[in-house]
Amino acid sequence: MTRAFASRSFAFLFAFLTLAVIVLVDTSPARAQGSDFFDFFGRGNSRGGPTYTYRSSPGYSPGYYGGNSGYYGGGGPSIFGRGGGSYYGGSPIQRELVSAPGSFAPGTIYINTAERRLYLMLGNGQALRYGIGVGREGFGWAGTHRVTAKKEWPSWTPPREMLARRPDLPHYMPGGIENPLGARALYLGSTLYRIHGSNEPETIGQAVSSGCIRMTNEDVVDLYNRVRIGTVVVVRN
C-alpha cells in the first residue's frame, strides 16, 4: 500500500512539473518575439492583439464625376485596408459636397491656389471640394490644361531644375508609399506639373511644393477614380 501511494505521488509530481514547463515555454520572451514577428507581417496574433495586413490597391469600385463612389466625406475606405484616412493620416481639410464656385462644365477640375482648394464639378450647381497643397512663393502658376495621363503609384524623376536646387535628391525613385508623388498622379499637358498624392498629409492647405498640386493619398485616389484623360483643369491664383 505504501509502495502504491508513493507511485501515485510520483506520477502526480511528474504531471505537475510537465505542466509548469509548458507554461514557462509558452510565455517566454523568445515565444513573445516570435509572435510579434508574425503579427508584423499580418499572419495572425496568438496573443489577441491587432493584426495588420498591407493592401496596395483601393477596395472600392471607380465612380466618375457623376458621384457614384458612394461617399463625399473624408472617412471613406482606406486604400491601405485600414479604413478612415490614408496610411499616413487623413487630410486636415475634409472632402465636401458644396455649391459650384462658378459656371464650369460638369467634369471640369477647378483649382483655386489662393484658397488651397480643388473643385471637381458634378453638374446641377454642385462640386466636390478637396483640400490641397500648392506651390510655395515663386512657384505659383495659373492656366488651363487637360489631363493627358493617369498613373497609379507613379515613379518620380526630378527635373533638372529641381536637381540643380537640390543635388541631394535621387535622380529616380520607383513608385511606392515612400515616393513623394504618392498613390496616384494626373499629368497636365506638356507641363512639369501634376496633381498627385503625398506622404506628407500635414502639408495640405500649405504652399510648400515646387508648383505641383498635392492631395492626400486618400483624396487623390478618389479624384483619380472620378476623372478621365482629357478632363479640363483650370488653375487660378
Rank of each mutant, 00 (worst) to 15 (best):
R3P: 03
R3G: 08
R3K: 10
A4V: 10
S7G: 14
S7N: 14
F10Q: 15
L13P: 01
L17I: 06
D26I: 11
A30M: 02
A30Q: 04
F38D: 08
D39Q: 15
S46R: 13
G49Y: 13
T51S: 13
R55D: 11
R55N: 09
S57C: 12
P58C: 15
G66E: 10
G66Q: 10
Y71Q: 02
P77H: 11
P77W: 07
F80Y: 04
R82S: 14
G84T: 10
G89C: 03
I93N: 03
S99C: 08
G102Y: 00
A105G: 10
A105Q: 10
A105Y: 05
I109S: 06
T113D: 06
L120V: 03
G123C: 04
Q126H: 05
A127R: 01
A127M: 00
L128D: 07
Y130D: 08
G133W: 02
G133T: 10
R136D: 11
F139E: 06
T144E: 14
H145V: 15
V147G: 12
T148G: 11
T148S: 14
W153M: 12
S155Q: 10
S155P: 02
T157L: 08
P158V: 15
P158S: 15
P158Q: 14
L163A: 09
L163S: 09
D168F: 01
D168C: 01
L169P: 00
P170W: 12
M173L: 10
L181R: 00
G182P: 01
G182W: 02
A183H: 07
A185F: 05
Y187F: 08
L192V: 15
Y193E: 07
R194K: 06
N199F: 07
P201L: 12
T203G: 04
G205N: 02
Q206M: 06
G211I: 03
C212W: 00
I213D: 01
R214Y: 04
T216E: 05
V220R: 02
L223Y: 01
R228F: 04
T231C: 06
V233F: 02
V235L: 02
R236W: 00
